[in-house]
Structure formats: C-alpha cells, structure tokens
Amino acid sequence: MTARTRIGLVLGAWGLFYCLYRAYYALGGTVGMFGTPVSHQQWLLVNAIGAGILLVAAVLPVATLPLWRHPFGRRGMEVLCWVAAVGCVMHALVDAIQRGLSLAGLLYLELPFWTAVDRRMADLQDLLFNEPWFLAEGLLWAWLAVTGLSAGTARRRWLISAGTAVAVLTVIGMLSATGVIGTFIVG
C-alpha cells in the first residue's frame, strides 16, 4: 500500500469520525450540547447537512485516489488538495483564535442560533474538539498533495502558495471577526 493510499484512507476515516459526531446530533443526541437552540428542528437540519457534507469529505479522498495516476487527474487532485488544505487550516486557525479571545474575555461572539448557551463550554468544545479536527483534516489534505508532487520546485511552490493563502485568509478572517473590516465569510 502506497503512502498516498494510506493517507487517503486516514482522511476518509477522519472525515467519517466527524460525520458520526454530526449525525449523532442530527438524530437528536444531546450529550455534549452547551445550550438550547432557538429551533430544535433547525439544529437537527444543520447537523444533518453537516453530516452529509462530512460524509462526502470522508468518501472523496478515497474515491479520488485513482485520479493521481493520470496527468489531468493529478492536476485536479493538486487543486482539490490545495483548496481543502487551505480552507480547513484557515478555518481552524480563525475559529481557534476567536474562541481563545472569547475565553479571555477579549471578543464577544454572536451565537444567534441559541436561546441559552454556556459560552465557556461552547468555546472549549470548539477549541478542543472542532477546530483540531479541521486542522488535522487540512494538514492531511496537504500531506496527500505532497505525496503526489515531485520533490523540488513543484512541491515548494504548492506549499508556499498554500501557506501564503492560509496566512492571508487568517488575517482577513480575524480582521472580519474583530470588526476591523466588514463581514467576510469563507466556508
């Protein structure tokens, strides 16, 4: 089994793990909830949609492994890996920073979907569970890409462009979250 196949399988399992977490809430589970949602039906729907998206995220890295063997497919996979890596890592960094600032009392996060909420528990759950998942997911997509790129210039270019995009989008996300610029939402 190649390193790329192993990474694809780990990505699939990692996505399935988070999918099951969302599916639990979509099916009415309540353990670990940090508040009372404004609409229970909306809570179920949001988690069902999230579980569906995460199921795609679990299947995609495994289903697309054969594409790496073809030049056109390889290019498509480099782009897919770049988008997934940048999006997930940026999401993890922006949200983790926001939750850290919230815990420190330096940022008030609007939580409009909740009628009652334990803000500290919400911040901790996001900081210790949700965002580490996104960070690991993004890093795994980057690792998958690196295994498909030839060593040298192509690999460096991919990593530098992804790192730059993460840095720029994280700064924009934090400027937006702190109200310095208008609302700017990516993903």
Rank of each mutant, 00 (worst) to 15 (best):
G73V: 06
T64Q: 06
E131W: 00
R120D: 05
W68Y: 14
G138W: 05
W133H: 09
P112D: 09
L65C: 03
C88R: 05
F113G: 12
R75T: 00
D123W: 13
R75V: 04
E78N: 07
A96C: 09
P71N: 03
I49T: 13
I49W: 15
G50E: 08
G105M: 11
W133L: 04
D95V: 15
Q125A: 14
A104T: 05
W68N: 02
I97M: 05
G100P: 14
G76C: 00
G52A: 02
L127A: 00
E78C: 02
I53M: 05
R119M: 11
R75H: 10
Q125E: 14
L45G: 07
L101M: 13
A48E: 08
V62G: 01
N130Y: 15
P112A: 04
L128D: 01
V89R: 04
T64D: 02
V89P: 08
V62C: 00
V94H: 08
G87Q: 01
L67G: 06
V59H: 09
A116D: 11
G87P: 06
W133D: 01
L111F: 05
A104C: 11
E137W: 14
L93G: 09
A63W: 12
D126M: 11
Q125C: 05
W114P: 08
E131F: 02
E110R: 15
A116C: 00
G138N: 03
S102G: 09
R75E: 13
C88G: 11
P132R: 07
G76V: 01
T115W: 05
E137D: 07
V59G: 07
L139P: 03
F134M: 05
H70C: 00
L135T: 00
L109R: 13
A85Y: 12
Q98N: 11
A92K: 04
A104L: 13
D126H: 15
P66K: 10
M90R: 14
L103A: 06
R69D: 14
A85M: 08
G52D: 10
G105Q: 14
L107I: 01
R75W: 09
H70R: 13
A51W: 10
A104P: 04
A116N: 08
L139C: 11
V89S: 05
I49N: 07
L124K: 01
D118A: 08
L80S: 01
P132K: 07
